[in-house]
Design a protein around this nucleic acid. Structure first.
Lengths: 208, 208
DNA sequence: ATTACTTTGTGAACTTATTCACAAGCGTCA
DNA sequence: TGACGCTTGTGAATAAGTTCACAAAGTAAT
């Protein structure tokens, strides 16, 4: 299969969330035009995105909402549970551990790690903060699919090295640094400063 | 000035954070090659990005770290303070209100709003949660530059309408819905579900 | 069964973004 | 001062992503 652009995957994700809304409203079919309207894109874009994975619609009618939802869930790999560990028991880590959105989508947070002695052993929800030094041996016993990294900038590089050593192939990075990882590890960055600066830029350069 | 792509702005933001690190290390100059290495891009990309705004380097030498930092801060509009209000006093809102990264970059959170009677009047840090119905009149008195929207999906559309009515031109959206706003309002979305699904997709489709 | 209407799927055209490649500028050292 | 090494800035080439536009395939109504 040809390489799929990140922007495409983001849109698929978006389409899925619209389909779920549409499904709740009880509608049975939806057109590429309607999906485009909801997602702020064009109908051609929607059809092109979907056509990368097959041909799911009916000409003259549109797409079956439950069928397309199911297909998208399959494409996005949401048909299974993913095991997630959180690295960094600070404020962001704490907020994430409590975040219900993870479990709703099949992402199970099964462990929290930190480097800081003071935090190790504390209980969070139903989890106990464990020392990051144990990550590699723990990972041998229970598979982790995704590591959520929420550590201070300075300790992040070291922490990520351990995550990679533990064989984890996907990282959701909240630390404000660029991670360097082998090619087979996928990283998604969530960087508040960057988003704010994007807004700041937009506000500063309007009408030029 | 020609239109600047969002991806470019993201990279500028990234370069700035590297420059700050470099500055702390006491280095005086940096080459496009070094910036590229830190940011996981190419030196040509770095130079192209910067050249959109002027010519800041010295051939044979590279860029002066403090000078380029300053230029980037200027370009990104970080030379001033921005007034920020948070809409939605739920968990994400709470975490954001406590987040120190805002203030560090000149983003002052000066108010929190919610629609829910039960939450109105509660104190958070040094702020009191106010009813969203007051947003428009408050905005007339104190200018808000940016609204951070962290409301449940269902109430978001109504809330955003009020934000727009209050004349706020930049929104950082944490709600898992696509906002519809006039063209002069800039929106940045932070959507955890989308990021997780991106990782899930990557894990499911490796080596194809 | 025919006609009118709708909407998909997809090559081709176009637009935007990235990378290449190199002349021109700057610093250093003899 | 001249030669060498390095790095920028930028047109030109390439690649990637989006939009156009239309044949093909379906529905619905008569």
């Amino acid at each position: 299969m040809k390489r799929i652009a990140e922007s495409t995957v983001r849109r698929l994700s978006l389409y899925l969330s619209f389909l779920e809304g549409t499904e709740r409203q009880g509608l049975k079919t939806i057109s590429s035009d309607e999906l485009a309207r909801l997602g702020g894109t064009t109908s051609a874009q929607v059809r092109k995105d979907l056509s990368l994975f097959g041909s799911f619609g009916k000409r003259g009618l549109g797409y079956s909402v439950p069928e397309l939802s199911e297909k998208l869930r399959e494409i996005l790999g949401l048909g299974r549970q993913w095991q997630v560990c959180i690295i960094g028991a600070g404020k962001i880590g704490a907020a994430l551990a409590r975040y219900r959105g993870f479990a709703e989508r099949g992402f199970n947070v099964t462990a929290v790690y930190d480097i800081d002695e003071a935090k190790i052993g504390k209980r969070w929800e139903n989890l106990t903060v464990r020392p990051i030094s144990e990550l590699e041996t723990d990972a041998a016993k229970q598979d982790f699919d995704i590591a959520v990294v929420a550590t201070p900038a300075e300790s992040t590089a070291a922490v990520v090295k351990q995550v990679v050593r533990a064989g984890i192939k996907a990282i959701l990075n909240f630390a404000p640094v660029q991670l360097s990882v082998p090619a087979d590890v996928t990283v998604r960055n969530v960087n508040m400063a960057m988003e704010l600066e994007g807004l700041s830029f937009a506000l500063s350069n309007r009408g030029e």
